[in-house]
Amino acid sequence: MTRFPVLPAVILAISALTGCQVLQKPAQTTDSQKTSRTETEAPDSKQKTEELQTFKPSKPLLPDTISVKQQLVQTPARVGGKLVLGFAEIGTLTEYGLKMDAKIDTGAGRSSIDARNIKNFERDGKKWVRFDLPRTSKANVTLELPVKDTVLIKVPGDEDSQTRYVVNINVKVGDITQNLDVSLNDRERFEFPLLIGRDFLKDMAIANVGKKYIATEKVLDTFTVKVPTGGNLSIKEQIDKPVDVSGLALFGELEEVRIKGFKNTFKARIDTGAKTSSIDATDIEYYTKNGEEWVRFKVVNGDNSQTFERKVHREVSIKRHGGLANQSRVTVFIPITLGKISKNVEFTLTNRTGYEHPILIGERLLSNTALVDVAQQNIAETKK
């Protein structure tokens, strides 16, 4: 068999002459080369990580709800354009910046203030008076004012009369300011140093003795609510709650009262300053019945009269102005009709000969039952 040992040499010679390349296996990558390539890629990866860490959104992420603080605020009520005042309010002597607790009294024609150590004197040929106001927002305060007038107070059943000085003062309750001729009176035994009478109330305000301190705004409650963050929801920080006067009757300063057994009606003073109603009773006699105390008395109205016998309910002590001693009276229940109201009413028995009206309707009946407008009379709606 013939062999050709020179063939490879010939092929190499031809490749060299023609410029062709001989195909060879690709070189294997070494571990050192792999490591080198990885190290060159690492800086790019680290840079991307830092960029991710430093990325911040353009807007902060908001919670689904936010907390909003709200206040429930009492707002005053008005009826027929007149401010509704409670049994008690804050009165302000505007010229002196003095505040004091005031009682709203539809039975008093003139307002009165608690004055102590009253001394009269002359200044520039005119009568002046110096007095202390012991219960004000600035504690005890001494004032000097010209005497506007003097009034003679005659208390029924007492022989002695009392002279009181009258001074002119600006008094504010709620948003109403009135220039009043106020009488100076020692009210130490009374809860309220200032008494607001019909001179302040007439044409400006009406009384609601079932509530207190309702003439100005007052925060009733504070609470926090959660609301959604999305949308255009508007949340009020203040929720107004007007004073509720719905369902109350309206009485004038004087009303007609009916008592069973009498054909004609009785004229009655509507008096928020009196705790218990009162009726003119004469010929009062006490006796015992079944071991209990009873009373026999006569009620007169014009030409008609009637004798009642009633079980004594209790005995009350009536405070009187001007330092006069308290008066003890017994109470009984008598059924009456006033407007649409028919009920058994507690009355004190007293001789009201010196008073203008035989019946006085007090706070116990009026509370949560009626509003009182002293600018009107005989306005109670009657039963159909």
Results as ranks from 00 to 15, higher is better:
I176D: 01
I176T: 09
T177M: 03
T177G: 03
Q178I: 01
N179A: 12
N179W: 03
N179Q: 14
L180H: 00
V182P: 00
S183L: 08
S183W: 00
S183H: 08
S183Y: 01
L184C: 01
N185I: 11
R187P: 01
R187H: 02
R187Y: 04
R187W: 05
F190L: 13
E191M: 11
P193A: 10
P193M: 06
L194I: 06
L195P: 01
I196C: 02
I196H: 01
I196T: 05
I196M: 04
G197T: 07
R198I: 07
R198D: 08
R198N: 13
R198C: 10
D199G: 13
K202C: 04
D203L: 02
D203T: 11
M204I: 07
I206M: 07
V209Q: 02
V209T: 15
G210N: 06
K212Q: 15
K212W: 02
A215Y: 05
A215D: 11
A215M: 08
E217T: 14
E217P: 03
K218E: 11
F223N: 09
T224C: 01
V225W: 07
V227P: 06
T229A: 04
G230S: 12
N232K: 12
L233W: 00
K236I: 00
E237M: 12
Q238T: 13
D240F: 13
D240M: 10
K241L: 14
P242W: 04
V243W: 03
D244N: 15
D244W: 10
S246A: 15
S246N: 12
L248P: 08
A249R: 11
L250A: 11
F251V: 06
G252Y: 00
G252Q: 10
G252K: 09
G252P: 02
L254P: 03
L254C: 03
R258D: 11
K260Y: 04
K260A: 10
G261T: 07
G261A: 09
K263Y: 01
N264Y: 11
F266I: 07
F266R: 02
F266E: 01
K267S: 10
K267A: 08
K267C: 00
A268Y: 04
A268P: 04
R269D: 07
I270D: 00
D271R: 04
T272A: 01
G273C: 05
T276P: 05
T276A: 06
S278W: 07
I279N: 09
D280E: 11
D280Y: 03
A281F: 04
T282C: 02
T282I: 14
D283Y: 12
D283M: 05
I284E: 11
E285H: 14
Y286L: 14
Y287K: 12
Y287P: 09
Y287G: 10
K289S: 14
K289H: 14
E292Y: 07
E292M: 10
V295P: 10
K298I: 00
K298E: 12
V300N: 05
V300G: 01
G302S: 09
D303H: 08
D303Y: 04
D303V: 10
